Simulated scan of single mutants.
Amino acid sequence: MKKILLTGGMGFFCSRFYEKYKNEYQILALGKQELDVTNKDKVFNIFSDFKPDYVIHAAAIASTDFCNKNPHIARKINVEGSVNVAEVSNKVGAKLLFISTEQVFNGNTELGPYKEDDTPIPNTVYGQNKLEAEELLKEIIEELWILRFSWLFGMAERNMGMASNILWDTITSLIKGEKIYASPNEFRGMTYVYDMIDNIVKVFDIPYGTYHIGSTNDMSRYDVVKHILIELGLENRVEEILINDEEKYKDNPRDLRLNTDKISKYGIVFPTTKEAISNCLREYRMR
């Protein structure tokens, strides 16, 4: 049985990954309490004892606001911590899968979808951290996959990590009776977390390199929220609930969509965001 070590093991993605594959792989899922990635000696000791075949490095501070306000802390974890994980993975002979982000394109002015060889221009500390880590890791370890994720979504589940996402945030606003503001000038891929989990182990069988991965999406954020409301049976209340925030990104549309043609050639394909939202709600018997 192959061994997988997960950093950020208690998070939104990794906690669900563990439950999905705990009987197919020997998995060590470590949260920040168990593994401080900035402590290289501790990283080495844990990796040496477990001897993973694969390391999925998901540990990061992903809050844009926190990173912008605390750049030194963010870089220590997001960059220096990633370097430690890469160096130790290389020493123990583990293959490394590094989870990066669409946010590396947050400062680009041309419209997406972006290909892997397009020049990223991050304008947030988090995006800058991830891009810097990508470049450093490529110099440290050859057995490396860099996956730039699109925004993950999913439902809250018992004893699972959670993160802000388009579907659950919409449902939460409905529960609270709040209006929902969404821009027609924002475009990004949004991927059902379980679609990502189903596909990510397939990456172990493709060549090393940088890949864009996740669902494609041609709908604006406004249209995505509208689709969610309609799928929930609230089509007659869309105008009451959903506010078309036309001013946001009016002068500079935000487009973080990723072109996933490269990874699709290896049979790693996803439903569109629209299809994935419908599938998720169907799974939870909400449509």
Rank of each mutant, 00 (worst) to 15 (best):
N84P: 06
V92T: 09
C14G: 12
I140P: 00
L28H: 10
K20Y: 04
C14Y: 09
D205T: 02
P271L: 13
E246M: 02
Q33Y: 01
G214F: 01
T172Y: 03
K176Y: 08
N185F: 03
K274L: 10
G267K: 07
Y222V: 06
F153R: 04
N165P: 10
R254G: 11
A94P: 09
D65L: 06
Y54V: 13
P52W: 07
E235Q: 15
H72G: 04
L256F: 00
F270H: 08
T38F: 09
G189S: 03
I268W: 06
G214S: 04
I175H: 09
K42Y: 04
E110P: 06
K179D: 11
K274C: 06
F105I: 05
V37S: 08
I241F: 09
T170R: 06
E24Y: 14
L281C: 10
G8S: 04
S183E: 07
V55F: 03
Y54E: 14
G8H: 02
V193A: 13
D261C: 05
M162H: 02
K226W: 04
T191L: 10
G189P: 02
R237W: 11
R282H: 03
V201A: 03
L131Y: 13
T170F: 05
S150M: 15
I241P: 09
V238A: 15
A163N: 12
F47W: 00
K138T: 02
A276G: 15
V201I: 07
K40C: 14
T216D: 15
I230P: 10
T38A: 14
P52C: 14
I243Y: 08
F50G: 07
A60H: 01
T170K: 10
V83D: 06
